[in-house]
Every structure is written in structure tokens, then in C-alpha cells.
């Protein structure tokens, strides 16, 4: 699943942060990157939607309803990956006192929560035609719901502490405890699920993946991933301005843009 791949990717990310550690340099770098990332995101979305909604043939079992998968699955993956990335940023910020990492963690949370919410809504929209009920206590949807509560908890703690440094470090500890608990929650929910509905069709056993389905899924996944990085950079730039407002370079920047 996404967690372990996420950790390897994220350590490269953390080395990248150390290289561009100073918020000032990262602010300028992010400024240059955002337009490119936005362009790639838009392109990927257009291609993905075309492939997913038009090019891919309907499934013999679920008909066209399965196309919801191209939105549901990428969001589910991103919701998990975003939490791992958020916890890694938070841990980096807390352990090595890297302010930029704190900001990146804080900027990730709302995006991760949005991915989780989208995964939940699209999941239930997919469940309705399949099983006739809006909410299916399916293992993946249930652990997705709990992940959503973890995000809300993280953001609530972050918002209720005034001192930005304490807010960052306190929510970092919560994120670390959270990321340790995610596998436990995940498997206990799966275990709980097998106890109660051993036989019935669940969302996890989605239609057999043909190549025609895999391509749109991959494209849409990358689309949402680039969307995450684009908006992460946009959010972190304003976070940098807020937290670095007393530094000279921000004063000059704000002053120059009369």
C-alpha cells in the first residue's frame, strides 16, 4: 500500500528541503515551480478525464458506473500518501527544528483532508448503484473515514494553539502518533470487516483491472499528485510570508510590491 513507498519518496523530499531549507530560497523556488506544476496538472487532468470518461470501454459487469473508480481510487491513494508526507514533514520540523518542514506539514493537512473527503463521497456514490445503499461499511471506506477524523484532529489542534512553534510541534507529535496507528487501524478495520461480511462483494474487489482501465487510473493518479504539489507550494508560500513576516527579506518584498 502507499505507506512504505511514501516513506522512501519522502526521505528524498526531506534531503531536498535541507538543500533549500532557508524559507527565503524555498519561497523563490516555489514561485518559479508553481506555474509549471499547474500546467502539468491541468494537462494530466484533461488527458485523464478524456481517457477515463470517453476512451475506456464500459465494464461488462458494472457498465459505466465503474468510471467513478478513476476519481475514487486516486483520491484514496493520495489521502493515505498525503498523511505519510505530512507526518514526515512534521517529524522533520519537530526533531531538527526545521521551520520550513513545519509549514509544509501545515499546508498539507487541508489537502489531505480534501482527498479523504472526495474519496468518501465518490466511494459512497459508487456504492449506491452497486449495493443500493449510500454508505457501505466496507473496510476501505471505514478506514478512510477514520483517516478523515485524524486529519480533522490534526487541523483542530493546529488551529487551537496560538504560538505557531508550539502548534507545529504539538501537531507533529499527533501526526507521528497518528501515522504509527494508521496500519493498526487499517488492519483492525479489515479484520473487523472479515468478521462481519466474509462473503459479500466489497468495494475492495473492484472489477478486474484491464489495461484499458489501468491507463486512465495511472494518469488520474498523477494528475491528483501534481495537483497536491501545486497547491502545496501555493499554500506554503503564504505560510512562509506569515511566519517570516518579521524578517527583512519579507519586509522588502512586501514593501516593493506597493
Amino acid at each position: 500500500m502507499g505507506e512504505f513507498g511514501g516513506f522512501a519518496g519522502v526521505s528524498r523530499l526531506i534531503k531536498f528541503i535541507h538543500k533549500y531549507g532557508a524559507p527565503k530560497r524555498f519561497y523563490r523556488l516555489a514561485g518559479r515551480l508553481v506555474p509549471w506544476f499547474a500546467g502539468v496538472t491541468a494537462l494530466l487532468f484533461v488527458v485523464g478525464l478524456y481517457l477515463g470518461l470517453y476512451w475506456a470501454p464500459p465494464d461488462y459487469q458494472q457498465g459505466d458506473a465503474y468510471r467513478i473508480m478513476f476519481v475514487h481510487v486516486p483520491n484514496a491513494w493520495m489521502s493515505m500518501m498525503a498523511y505519510v508526507i505530512m507526518a514526515s514533514f512534521a517529524a522533520t520540523g519537530y526533531i531538527w527544528n526545521v521551520r520550513l518542514a513545519d509549514m509544509l506539514a501545515k499546508a498539507t493537512a487541508p489537502l489531505g483532508a480534501s482527498f479523504t473527503l472526495t474519496a468518501l463521497v465518490t466511494g459512497s456514490l459508487w456504492g449506491k448503484p452497486m449495493w443500493g445503499t449510500w454508505w457501505v461499511w466496507d473496510a476501505r471506506l471505514t478506514s478512510e473515514l477514520i483517516l478523515f477524523f485524524l486529519y480533522v484532529g490534526y487541523m483542530a489542534l493546529q488551529a487551537s494553539i496560538d504560538d505557531p512553534r508550539r502548534a507545529a510541534h504539538a501537531s507533529a507529535i499527533l501526526a507521528i502518533v497518528g501515522v504509527v496507528n494508521i496500519p493498526i487501524i487499517h488492519y483492525s478495520v479489515y479484520w473487523w470487516h472479515t468478521l462481519h461480511q466474509p462473503a459479500s462483494l466489497t468495494l475492495t474487489s473492484q472489477p478486474k483491472i484491464y489495461i484499458t482501465m489501468l491507463i486512465p487510473l495511472i494518469v488520474m493518479s498523477f494528475a491528483f499528485m501534481f495537483f497536491y504539489f501545486t497547491m502545496l507550494l501555493v499554500r506554503v508560500r503564504s505560510e512562509i510570508l506569515v511566519r517570516e513576516q518579521r524578517t527583512d527579506w519579507v519586509r522588502k518584498l512586501v514593501g516593493s510590491k506597493q
Partner: peptide, 8 residues
């Protein structure tokens, strides 16, 4: 030392 983001 700092309090929040303000260096004291």
C-alpha cells in the same frame, strides 16, 4: 531564544 516566531 524566541517566543513564537519573535526572537527575544
Amino acid at each position: 531564544c524566541a517566543r513564537g516566531d519573535r526572537t527575544l
